[in-house]
Write a protein that binds this DNA or RNA. Structure first.
Length: 270
DNA sequence: CCTGCTACCTGATGGC
DNA sequence: TGCCATCAGGTAGCAG
């Protein structure tokens, strides 16, 4: 559940299940998920702690504990599942948090995701490097203009840089640029104010629509096979190489930018 | 400091 | 069917 809208949808749906619960015990099935931390330390730190609140920063999910916090990142495929007692067989569990009446499982067969404990938020280095959150009220046109002015990279690369703006990933960067009619290879620092205005409202609109799509139906943590349904229905360019642009009919192109697939319409994105 | 490249992992998919 | 190459919604760390 990679980008900010997916994490936001998870946060909203998960909150009633776990807020106020106490972590009775933790079980590290695959230590790689807490790397470079150590299982014994991890368990010692989280055992007995109450999950006071759940929050989000960029693509990170935060479980704020009575002492310290857990910082989760799902990378490509990481997932949360709730079980009544023990995980059902066949589910690739990395870490189990035994709560009062349920078991919260961090699941990631590819082992890219992480769940890390920190004594306080300032100790979480990855969080301190994050730029302005896309869902923050401070994410305004002037704020975006100021951020983009400092770099001359391709606008697509700048949007993906979490230290500039936090929460946009590979799908929604392509989507927002298509919506804003901006070529992904435009230089961030050379965008005109009108282009930045278009980009800003496109980012906001695309992400808001994504949150709605990811929340309806909400993630079903009780079903180990849950994933965001019908996401492709809201996508306008992503993974549409060769198919007609939904605005002008030209063939959508796929290029590599910053090592990532980038989709755009060569005719209406200038 | 800034930027681009690669490693990190496993599973799904498609061509031959 | 089997085998191999390619691709995947991300980030840290390192080299230039």
């Amino acid at each position: 559940m990679p980008e900010a809208p997916e994490v936001e949808a998870v946060l909203r749906a998960l909150r009633p299940h776990i807020e106020g619960c106490t972590i009775r015990d933790a079980c590290i099935v695959h230590p790689i998920a807490i790397k470079p931390q150590r299982a014994t330390e991890f368990v010692r730190h989280v055992r007995g702690q109450t999950i006071q609140s759940i929050s989000r920063r960029g693509k990170y999910l935060l479980l704020n504990l009575s002492r310290g916090l857990l910082v989760l990142h799902f990378k490509f495929d990481g997932q949360l599942i709730l079980f009544d007692r023990q995980p059902s067989p066949g589910v690739h569990v990395d870490v189990l948090l035994h709560l009062d009446k349920t078991v919260l499982a961090f699941v990631d067969p590819r082992h890219f995701g992480r769940i890390l404990w920190y004594p306080d938020i300032a100790s979480a280095r990855s969080l301190s490097k994050l730029g302005l959150d896309v869902f923050s009220p401070s994410f305004t046109v002037p704020a975006l203009a100021k951020i983009l002015r400092r770099t001359n990279r391709f606008i697509k690369s700048a949007l993906l840089d979490q230290s500039l703006v936090a929460g946009i990933g590979n799908i929604y960067s392509s989507e927002a640029l298509w919506q804003a009619k901006l070529n992904p290879r435009k230089r961030a620092g050379r965008l005109k104010i009108g282009e930045i205005r278009r980009l800003h409202s496109s980012v906001v609109a695309v992400l808001r629509r994504a949150v709605r799509c990811c929340s309806e139906p909400p993630p079903d943590f009780r079903n180990p096979g849950w994933w965001f349904a019908d996401l492709d229905k809201i996508l306008r360019v992503y993974q549409r190489e060769g198919r007609p642009c939904r605005r002008c009919g030209s063939a959508i192109r796929r290029i590599e930018l910053a090592g990532r697939s980038t989709y755009f319409c060569p005719r209406c994105q200038r």
